[in-house]
């Protein structure tokens, strides 16, 4: 009986299958987020206050962190774009073995632990690491590479490159190669054909990939913490620091809410441009 009833009314059983996950998300995600925002606005004191936000926008150290976060994320996005564009182009237009080889190489950072990758960069950039030893052979003195802004950019670009390459390649695949050939037949040089035909068509991918990389970059923690110096602190690092060392939970909540809100804004811009479905599946 129950089986037949369920066959007749599958909606009820599907609702039953969704219930546990909605309960989990409600209890372990929505409630904590609401609680975090409430805490940042003074729920533990019982009065509405902006006192926990005030230092973020008035104290130089925190303004500096906000600026760092923005600057590092923006630069990472630009560098990632420049590195990824030709790779994605060859993935989309190259012959099968080349395209497969480049895809596999692109996915390497995806499937290795973030800590392992970052450690690899520490080995390359450290005072007695690969790059400095190579410089030494050329007779150039050791250069401070590790614990610099440059190291943070290199590490973050490395981690975020796959997202950019994959987003660009999926857009490039949809561009008809016949268009470039047509431009060539009408006498356009390759460079001209690229600038006037291919590049404008690739812009949705450029925008999508950039928004995605920027969105992921602003929440970065491990890479700037391990490869940067005290001057390269990003917002995610001080959120954790407030809990770990300063024990200032309310301030941590305010910083975290700011990061949360910024991420949502970037995400909604992305969703507006590309549709919600695409936006949700972007970060796999």
């Amino acid at each position: 009986m129950s089986a037949i009833a369920r066959l007749r009314n599958p909606k009820a059983s599907y609702a039953l299958m969704l219930l546990p996950v909605l309960a989990l998300i409600g209890f372990l995600f929505i409630y904590p987020m609401v609680d975090m925002v409430a805490r940042s606005l003074g729920s533990t004191q019982g009065t509405l206050t902006t006192q926990y936000y005030a230092p973020i926008f008035s104290k130089t150290i925190y303004l500096r962190v906000l600026w760092n976060t923005f600057e590092i994320s923006l630069l990472t996005t630009l560098v990632t774009l420049v590195l990824a564009y030709p790779v994605a182009y060859l993935i989309a237009t190259g012959r099968r073995p080349l395209s497969l080889f480049l895809t596999v190489c692109t996915l390497i950072p995806f499937f290795t632990s973030l800590l392992v990758r970052t450690y690899g960069w520490m080995v390359i950039l450290s005072p007695e690491g690969l790059l400095n030893e190579a410089l030494g052979l050329l007779g150039l003195g050791p250069v401070a590479l590790l614990y610099t802004r440059g190291a943070v950019l290199v590490g973050m670009t490395y981690s975020l490159l796959p997202y950019m390459v994959l987003t660009l390649a999926s857009v490039f695949r949809g561009i008809d190669p016949g268009l470039m050939r047509a431009a060539g037949l009408f006498g356009a040089s390759n460079v001209r054909a690229f600038l006037h035909v291919y590049f404008p068509l690739s812009l949705p991918g450029v925008l999508g990939g950039s928004l995605l990389v920027f969105l992921l970059a602003i929440g970065y923690f491990i890479t700037p913490a391990l490869l940067g110096s005290g001057r390269d602190q990003m917002i995610a690092m001080i959120v954790y620091e407030q809990v770990d060392r300063s024990l200032n939970w309310e301030f941590a909540a305010a910083l975290s809410t700011l990061l949360f809100a910024t991420t949502l804004v970037v995400f909604f811009v992305y969703a507006r441009v590309f549709g919600l479905g695409k936006a949700l599946e972007a970060k796999r």
């Binding site: 996950v21 995600f29 904590p32 975090m36 995610a236 949360f260």
Partner: peptide, 25 residues
């Protein structure tokens, strides 16, 4: 679509944000 968005959203936020929320709870 809303359920789908809700279920996927923890993945899109920085882990620090989700981690802090869970830490309070």
């Amino acid at each position: 679509p809303l359920f789908y968005a809700l279920i996927l959203s923890p993945m899109l936020l920085p882990s620090v944000v989700v981690g802090l929320g869970l830490f309070f709870l």
